[in-house]
Design a protein around this nucleic acid. Structure first.
Lengths: 338, 338
DNA sequence: CTGAAAGCGCTAACAT
DNA sequence: ATGTTAGCGCTTTCAG
């Protein structure tokens, strides 16, 4: 590791003081254009690179942001939600433009959170998917900008949030099914009562039926573990209710499980059942029939999250704005007109 | 942000000097057990958290590792290889145990790489998937431990590597096909000539055929863009060669495309064609028929990569060990005994 | 076993 | 427009 070159080295070479070099490097309007240029040139020439660590110690800014993923085991987060990867990439890209680097963290325990935050001195915090109760206090006392993505929590309003309009998504999906001639439409989701997301999705479904004067049949609501296997289990229940012709699922994995369950039973989607999913995971277009589903605009989501943080940082402020994004219905082959 | 508590505060309270506190905190055997305990207690009590920034400036260690992903746009990396997310999670988990945090970075340009490395002062570097030519010089002069994962490059030998035995994977797949009664077995991959990975996979296929005294038919080798669409395109070529009864694919996406291509043509897997993939992506078990494929042990991969780095760090050494991991054949429903 | 003091690289008053 | 100087929080010789 060749000896590190510091602003002192540059200063000495140019017979000026380190302060002047620092000013030049930071574009502080205190140094002549001529001097600045000379400094910048020799800096490059000498292979100087600014030491973030020293800057941080001096200014308190680390140019580090952290992204907390749900689960203590991050890899589970990626398996559960294939979007996380895409989100990370897009988010990183945005903050890098402003000079920030991205730290990835799993969920941290109560006793470790604040020490970690302070120890690392991150400038801003993004939280994806779940906002553990115990984070609240630590975040509050840490006092830096926060953005919560896809979280609905009683205290979420204290910070910036970006969410998608779940109800709008399911509303559109259900509407599409109705327009395709379906009346007996089931809804399957995780836990309507404990998951606010599932609740919001259910609301959209409910609203669409109501608007079309289709009575809500409580027997058409199915609760299941949100997974492929959960979906195949639901399929067998669905098969018993002959009058159901379509189903809207709160997740693609569920929908794909149902498609497989039907096939295993010698039935078929969309002839025996029309299904629409939610998420547009990668598999959605790979299965047969390709899944009609609701797609989130991850790009917009990542952009919104990054901007909220960057804005707060610029204004030395801890904001609590909300950005609600609209999802889009992707029509493929799993719905049949009847 | 409540005032930060430093070792000075602790020292003052206990009427000792900051140095003593530092020793106690670092388990340097220079302070009495009694004193150490008292210090640790009051540290906890006062809500002290060690400032990494200051430690770094003083010691040169940042406790930061960086993981470079292929592509300038990270999100593409995740789409192309669904394993990356899992790898990141597992890798992070491992290094965290040793106190390291993980920085995620896309591919960086030549002129920015070294400055970034130096500026951030990362302690170690992991590179996933692709090792751009221009990284070599920067890494060399930066002089910290490096591990290359899944890279085959002419200079790769300079650093630690973890790779999977591609040839073994395809050898097993081909062998399995042969044991199932197939003789006319095709191979489809990206670019046999430019991608070393594809080359290695081809070698395994080749070796299995050879061992069973099945002559290699050059017409049975298909080159395609590695994607779902590439797969469906290959399907139509495959359909023209009536004698082919099975195919081994260098990637699941390719395999899944072929399955769909066959279905679109009114044909069917595995009755008209047996197929085995490579990767075991999430969709592999969701499609119909569920895909028989070769699965990499991501957990082992991440663990190996992390350990190589941690070991080097402990020994103040820049290693160049190789870890070659064996993949596993996952038998599902896309191969038929004939 | 503990204290004093220098130093890591940079910034930011304050002075000139 | 440039120089001086005092930190930022911690580690680490070197003394005692």
């Amino acid at each position: 590791m060749s000896k590190k070159v510091t602003i002192y080295d540059i200063a000495k070479r140019l017979h000026v003081t380190p302060a002047t070099v620092s000013y030049a490097l930071n574009n502080v309007s205190k140094v002549s254009e001529e001097m600045r240029k000379k400094i910048l040139d020799t800096a490059r020439e000498m292979g100087y690179s600014r030491d973030y660590t020293a800057v941080s110690l001096s200014t308190g800014k680390t140019y580090l942001m952290v992204l907390f993923l749900p689960f203590e085991d991050i890899s589970k987060a990626f398996l559960e939600n294939p979007f996380y990867g895409e989100f990370i990439g897009l988010f990183e890209q945005r903050i890098k433009r402003k000079g920030y680097d991205l730290l990835i963290q799993p969920e941290i325990s109560e006793k470790d959170l604040l020490p970690w935050l302070r120890g690392r001195g991150v400038d801003a915090i993004a939280i994806l998917g779940s906002y553990p109760k115990h984070y609240r206090k630590a975040l509050k006392t840490f006092g830096k900008p926060v953005v919560l993505v896809d979280v609905f929590d009683e205290y979420a309003e204290e910070y910036n949030r970006v969410i998608i309009s779940d109800s709008e998504g399911c509303y559109n999906a259900t509407k599409y099914l109705i327009e395709s001639g379906h009346k007996n439409i089931a809804f399957v989701a995780g836990d309507i009562h404990n998951s606010i997301v599932d609740q919001r999705r259910y609301d959209g479904y409910h609203k669409a039926l109501e608007e079309s004067n289709i009575s809500i049949n409580k027997d058409f609501l199915f609760i299941s573990e949100v997974s492929f296997d959960g979906g195949v289990a639901i399929a067998s229940q669905l098969l018993k209710k002959k009058d159901i012709t379509a189903v809207v699922c709160a997740a693609d994995t569920l929908a794909i499980g149902i498609v497989n369950g039907y096939r295993n039973a010698g039935k078929n989607v969309p002839d025996d059942l029309s299904v629409v999913g939610f998420d547009d995971i990668q598999s959605a277009k790979m299965i047969f029939p390709a899944l009609t589903t609701i797609k989130q605009d991850i790009r917009a989501k990542a952009k919104a999250a990054a901007n909220l943080l960057i804005e707060d940082l610029a204004n030395h402020n801890i904001g609590n704005k909300v950005m609600e994004l609209s999802p889009e219905l992707i029509i493929r082959d799993s719905v049949k007109k009847i």
